[in-house]
Design a protein around this nucleic acid. Structure first.
Lengths: 198, 198
DNA sequence: TTTTATTGATTGATCGTTCAATAAAAAATG
DNA sequence: CATTTTTTATTGAACGATCAATCAATAAAA
């Protein structure tokens, strides 16, 4: 089997296996042997391609963040108008994209969120992504709201999205995606309503 | 020092030390030796009073949940009226009580939230608390909203509270408590507004 | 023949638990 | 009041288990 060009294949397999293992056992109980066994390779491969367990975890988080960014970007690029509300809807829908709400992705995301508080490398990734969401939202809200009001509404919307996500991760069996999107979009409506007409 | 009646004192010391250690190093890197050293006792004491590390962690989570429940209950009992909005405000304020938003409590709470997904004992505690918050909110909202609308608004408010909390845990340095309370109360206003007058 | 891919046993370190020993206070005894 | 006895509190070294990382060996393509 040893062939050339195995690296991208193995990396993807191991990242998938990492999410599946975290989903099943939790980050705390995910060993490199469980992950490598699930990926169908030996434990040594992880150090070979990722430099170690930490490298694999960071790569997995990067993968999730990249998917999230792509989900949002794809929906926004599909828009013809530059209408603020349409872009905000797209941002919300991107955050609840199918690729983001599988059980494995949600649990892995939350596990990294918790871990990132004490690991500078992960924290950096986390913050970059956080800021991007927040500033994107704020930028769109400013089209209809004064600066301070836009910032406050952005904080609320970002918190609502994360909260819906968090609760979805905790109770996956009764996580109604479309209802979550609906709640977030309704929040957008209410925030914009309070600005234009006033 | 060995005296009678040490148990409640040691238990409290160890629970405090647990939160402080999780705040500093994260749950994953919190060993019983770090915790016991911080509490000024030996490692063996933990097994003696809590049966083991798991027992200490569960006791710590129970302690946090009890504090949260007390914070909410205290504020609601201080109300003279049975006005729905006043009770909802009290629930929000109780969730952002000073005892709930210290760095140590927030990080510990989030760590347990993540862990509870894979530990049935912790998950049970988590769900009981979750349901209580949700049903309390729903009950108050029903005073002004039709059942289905009340349930939906309750989901939104619960998610908003958790989301604000989550983001506060992640960026403690710029966590504006009063702003968080304000955002949640504003959400309540908007939800109730859409019901009565319609 | 060289390079790339992969294995898996070994190693070193860490951690939770156990338990026999110790110490001090409390209770019992005279 | 002085003493033994019992109970409660506490220690910390030893043990066993687990895990991430390493690396020499192997195998198949290039």
């Amino acid at each position: 089997m040893p062939k050339i060009g195995m690296e991208p294949i193995r990396r993807q397999q191991l990242i998938d296996a990492t999410m599946a293992t975290i989903d099943e056992a939790g980050l705390a109980d995910s060993t490199i042997m469980q992950i490598s066994r699930r990926a169908g390779v030996s434990a040594g491969i992880i150090s070979h391609y990722f430099g170690g367990k930490d490298g694999l975890l960071e790569a997995t988080m990067r993968h999730i963040l990249a998917d999230l960014g792509a989900s949002v970007a794809r929906r926004r690029q599909a828009l013809s108008s530059s209408d603020a509300k349409a872009h905000l809807y797209a941002i919300v829908e991107g955050n609840f994209d199918r690729s983001q709400v599988s059980q494995a992705v949600m649990k892995t995301w939350l596990a990294f969120w918790t871990t990132s508080m004490h690991k500078p490398d992960l924290q950096r990734l986390q913050r970059v992504n956080d800021r991007r969401l927040y500033s994107n939202i704020t930028y769109q809200l400013r089209k209809h709201l004064p600066p301070e009001q836009a910032r406050t509404a952005a904080r609320g919307l970002a918190a609502l999205i994360d909260g819906l996500w968090l609760r979805g991760a905790l109770s996956p069996e009764k996580f109604d995606i479309s209802n979550a999107v609906w709640l977030a979009c309704r929040y957008i409506d209410e925030q914009l309503q309070g600005g234009d007409t006033a």
